[in-house]
Design a protein around this nucleic acid. Structure first.
Length: 546
DNA sequence: ATTTGCACCGATGGTTTG
DNA sequence: CAAACCATCGGTGCAAAT
């Protein structure tokens, strides 16, 4: 079963190691789970190899962690493993990468994609749960109650490092193992003999077929008498004293290779195994692998729960909103966005006229402070779908208008406050540059420019910012989030201003006007350049429609 | 050479909180 | 009601793409 993590956050799948430099000196972007990093060669000092390869030291672990989160939400899981009446959803690629058994099943199932794999009854569901968790977390939970189940299942799944680890665990606890009651016949394969696989035809997903292993496509190596093979089984002796067991040929050889091996060679291999593993104790060996079968994940020297506890990356929640959050088991984030929108709308109906956008974001902020999972909020919807007409209805709250400035306020109270301080009144003056502000807070923010104070630091790269909004915009680089979508061409942008600028391509708007020669430009930089080249100065830059 | 996207920065003002 | 929080805006410069 899936072990829920203490921290519900996802972590980005990259971690850049470099000396603090101005963020403008590099560009980084993420598309989904892929990261693209471009560095100017001379600007950044970083951890890299001589050939310029940038190593993302947490990448592998973070990717695995994200896979685990996907599994927990049943997103893109493409196989159901049935073990002892229990069902486990997982990703084939992960199973293949960790288990020789699953590798064999899936690599040979290219024509009939198995959506359900039923394991032999000898595979223990508790043991499988432990091993499955290991596959996704790199953390193997060993308990005496389940050690035999784990060991047997590890053997069944051909996870040799798990087998070895289970054995070491048993030895360390003074537990012993009995030899199999029946010595497997020579040449028997390690692959469980009576595995059944339900094959679901892709074109007819509701149809299930049950076939036995021998009817699977050919294995990488000859299987020999698969149907006669007996899976290994150990039992903890009642007296828990260490006992010996006999070498098993089906453990020491390659998967299914013994049958086709020259008898002399096979004999030599068995003898070699016996010598290597002492006369009485044989460590189950991993079957040889085909060319591309991955190694079984090995125990990390630093393996511990602490080591696998993800570092909290606060702003990863934003990425989660778009990619992975939403309700359990729902693969479409936008569907959940609608759900969240409905929730937001419901809330809006109950609210007095306040800004739902701000309100929702505040709720998100609160929830984030409490480290709670939050739904996509109205504000997030704003960022994701700027053209949401339905959303507008949420903001049809009663407004209070200022007839002088032609602005609106959501409460008469704020309108009164507004009128008490008119824009011509800026009583707060900067002692350094004499700039004036209408609020102390604005002056306070301004003063940071002079003091150099940048209290908002990015936890990922260490960049600091004067305003928290700047930090929020910045972290989008790390999360890869591009919340602003062009409704015309679906191009996504990280910043609203960029989207607005982009939309001019579709609308044909050219708001920057040269009054001298009546030329119009889409970007201010174009106008500036024009003025510099044609008129020799940068003056009177005005925009229309503003 | 021009267009376009990106990121940072300073500022403003709506809203909430205590 | 002051302080704080927050979203948003406009501006700027840079660099990649065309």
């Amino acid at each position: 079963m899936f072990r829920d993590n203490d921290d519900d956050d996802l972590i980005p799948n990259f971690f850049v190691v470099f000396s603090p430099v101005p963020v403008s000196r590099f560009r980084a972007g993420v598309s989904g789970l892929n990261v693209r990093i471009c560095f100017p060669k001379q600007k950044v000092s970083m951890s890299s190899t001589a050939d310029g390869c940038v190593q993302f030291i947490r990448h592998a672990g973070d990717v695995l962690f994200n896979f685990n989160r996907l599994r927990s939400r049943n997103i893109l899981t493409d196989v159901t493993v049935r073990v002892g009446g229990r069902e486990f959803h997982a990703h084939k690629t992960v199973l293949m990468a960790c288990s020789g058994f699953f590798y064999t099943v899936f690599i040979n199932a290219h024509k009939t994609d198995p959506a359900v794999v039923s394991l032999d009854a000898k595979a223990d569901p508790d043991g499988f749960a432990i091993l499955l968790e290991f596959m996704y977390t790199s953390c193997l939970t060993l308990k005496e109650h389940f050690i035999v189940a784990t060991l047997n299942t590890a053997i069944y799944l051909q996870m040799e490092h798990m087998v070895e680890t289970c054995q070491r665990f048993m030895e360390s606890r003074g537990l012993g193992v009995k030899p199999p009651r029946e010595k497997p016949p020579a040449g028997s394969a390690h692959l469980p003999h009576d595995m059944t696989v339900d094959l679901r035809d892709v074109s007819a997903p509701t149809t299930h077929y049950a076939v036995s292993t021998p009817r699977l496509p050919p294995l990488p190596f000859p299987m020999g008498s698969v149907s006669n093979a007996k899976p290994l089984s150990w039992e903890i002796p009642k007296d828990c004293r260490a006992v010996t067991r006999e070498p098993c040929s089906n453990q020491g050889g390659s998967r299914g290779k013994c049958s086709s091996m020259d008898p002399d060679v096979r004999s030599a291999k068995v003898e070699e195994a016996e010598v290597e593993n002492s006369p009485h104790v044989v460590t189950p060996r991993s079957p040889l692998k085909s060319d591309c079968q991955p190694n079984s994940p090995a125990e990390s020297s630093g393996c511990s729960r602490e080591a696998t506890t993800p570092l909290k990356v606060r702003n990863w929640k934003k990425y989660k909103f778009i990619v992975l959050n939403s309700a359990e088991g729902d693969e479409n984030p936008f569907r959940n966005s609608n759900r969240a929108l409905e929730k937001c709308s419901e809330t809006a109906r109950k609210q007095t006229p306040v800004s739902m956008s701000t309100h929702a974001v505040r709720q998100e902020s609160k929830a984030e402070t409490k480290n709670e999972s939050t739904d996509l909020t109205c504000g997030d919807w704003d960022k994701m779908e700027n053209d949401s007409e339905n959303h507008q209805c949420l903001h049809d709250a009663k407004l209070y208008d200022c007839d002088v400035l032609r602005t609106s306020f959501t409460s008469n109270h704020n309108l009164t406050n507004h009128k008490s301080v008119s824009p011509g009144e800026k009583p707060y003056r900067c002692s350094v540059c004499s700039a004036q502000f209408n609020r102390p807070a604005n002056l306070k923010t301004h003063l940071r420019i002079h003091s150099g104070e940048k209290p908002y630091k990015c936890e990922t790269c260490g960049s600091a910012f004067v305003q928290v909004a700047h930090l929020r915009a910045h972290v989008l680089i790390h999360t890869g989030e591009k919340p602003y979508c062009c409704s015309v061409c679906n191009t996504r942008f990280r910043h609203l201003q960029t989207l607005k600028s982009h939309l001019r391509i579709h609308t044909g708007e050219k708001p920057y006007h040269c009054e001298t020669c009546d030329l119009r430009f889409r970007h201010k930089s174009q106008l500036r350049l024009h003025l510099r080249q044609k008129h020799g100065a940068v003056t009177n830059i005005k925009t229309s429609n503003r």
